[in-house]
Amino acid sequence: MAADLGKTARPDLTGIEHVPGSKKPDAIVVGDHITRQFGGLKAVDVGHIEIQRGVITALIGPNGAGKTTLFNLLTGFDTPDTGEWSFNGHPLARVVPHKVARLGMVRTFQLTKVLAKLSVIENMRLGAKGQSGESFLKAALPFLWRSEEARNTERADELLARFKLDAKREDFAGSLSGGQRKLLEMARALMVDPELIMLDEPMAGVNPALKQSLLGHVKSLRDEGRTVLFVEHDMDMVRDISDWVIVMAQGQIVAEGTPDAVMADPAVIDAYLGAHHDTDLSEMDEKALEAEAEAELEAELHDTETKGS
């Protein structure tokens, strides 16, 4: 076990086998046979996956490996062709996104979805769970929800202060920089008080100056007892903060393990550099891109099909 992880990693991880789909002692998410086909391409084909509770798990892999698609599947934004998965023992297959979120499994998006035309504090307030002021019948009667709103605002202000966004409180979220948007989205997700927070490329497009503080924030999530699952390309970040790494390639999990072990794994190097070292890299990239494009297109179609049903 890598020494530098010792101070934060849960002891549970030490005994876990470094094989794809390995069993975890205290899994918060357990999935089986999750597949998602886009035309001729299997975007996701995961035999078994477990996410350990209370640690930071990184999901890495080359472009088109199916990471975001897996996120979409797990959180109900996309529907798989086959598969079952559960969160805290709750079966989640065909559960709509907002119910998944209510169970305590909240995600962010690769292209941040801050609500640009709402102020930062309104974005935060929106995240709070179970607001009685959001009920149509009570909304017009402020005395029914005012104190609750004040409590939510207080909590929001605390989070904004923690994420150093308090100076931007009244600004339109659209005026924030890319990194601040990532922070706001993360803070907003925390307003839901999730048990598992899923971050889709939290570092993408973030100003290097902000990176360190973002890393700190992700770690602090774990330290307050939440489980974190994140997709990332930035290997430094993965090495720095994750306790466990799952590697995907071409829709499948190809390796699992602690960061150092995984980075030394030939299967992972294969996945990133192409299974055949002699094949032309640019060609492989092209294929991956093609696959990604196709996946997107199908996702759109499929997505509209299942929306709201």
Binding site: F71, N72, L111, D200, E296, H302, T304
Partner: peptide, 13 residues
């Protein structure tokens, strides 16, 4: 059959 009539949507995420 809404998918028969829908154009493209942005990708989620």
């Amino acid at each position: 059959r809404p998918q028969g009539i829908l154009g493209r949507r942005e990708r989620i995420g």
